[in-house]
Simulated scan of single mutants.
Amino acid sequence: MNGLYALKPWYAARLSGVRALLVTHGVHPSAITVAGIVFGAAAGAVLGLGETGPWAAVAVAAALAGRLACANLDGGVARDGGRSTRFGAVVNELGDRLAEYAALAGCLALADPALVAAAALAATLPSWAALAGAAAGARRPQGGPAGKTERCALLVLLALTGWTGWLIVLAAGSLLTAVVRITRVHRELREATS
């Protein structure tokens, strides 16, 4: 159950020219991470206007496409440019969370704050599950029914329709994704000790 994450190799290949250009020009991976946060904030700003419809959906989709591109590029630029560090991985994770929170914060103009808070908290669970698994020695599980890309798509649907129920779908899907990832980790670790 990899969801849209299955498209990552294809997407990374589409970004290979941009990645090479960034490495050639010595762009620091952390700058790309910060750009991802800015794109997340731009999506949040559009949502924060409280207006929904096609124009809002296009603007949110464009900002979140930039956010996802940065999430893909920062690690690739670090590896290709010989700048990978363990702390860089920490910055990458923090950047992903901040970008997502910045986008979700815009939903406060459209939905009850308790619903937005629940969605924001639930959205962190897939990453916590993956990081916990990696810390225990398992491969880091990715994808799932509501991974990062699917959560971005749900925010685009919210911008299009104004239906705040998409936040409930985001929260429930995030919880399910965390369960799927923990199950994968449990299976892998159990097999490793068998």
Rank of each mutant, 00 (worst) to 15 (best):
D96A: 00
I37W: 04
T161D: 10
L64F: 10
I182R: 14
G147N: 14
A192S: 10
A172R: 04
V58E: 12
N2D: 15
S30H: 14
Q142R: 11
E188I: 15
A146F: 09
A43D: 03
G88K: 05
T183S: 09
A129I: 12
E100A: 00
G53N: 09
L64W: 12
V179P: 06
G88T: 10
V27D: 06
L108F: 07
L175C: 14
W128T: 12
A13F: 07
G3N: 01
P141K: 05
A57I: 07
S174K: 00
A118Y: 11
A41Q: 07
S84W: 01
A56S: 15
G44D: 12
E188P: 11
L170S: 03
S30D: 15
K8T: 15
A12H: 15
G40Y: 03
D96Q: 05
V77N: 05
L167T: 03
L47C: 01
L110T: 00
R181H: 07
V185G: 12
R184H: 15
A45C: 12
T177D: 00
R79E: 15
V179T: 08
A159W: 04
Y11G: 08
V156P: 00
I37D: 04
R139E: 15
N92Y: 06
L108G: 05
V46S: 08
D112N: 14
T33C: 02
G44Q: 13
L157W: 08
A120P: 09
A118E: 05
R83T: 06
E51A: 13
G162S: 14
T161F: 03
L167R: 02
L115M: 13
L21S: 15
L157N: 06
V34K: 01
Y11L: 14
A65T: 14
A111I: 13
E150S: 10
T33D: 08
W55P: 01
A130L: 11
G36Q: 01
D80G: 06
A123V: 02
R184V: 15
W166R: 00
L157H: 07
W163I: 05
L68I: 14
A20F: 04
V180H: 10
R14E: 10
W163V: 03
L15A: 09
F39T: 00
G75N: 06
A136W: 09
I168D: 07
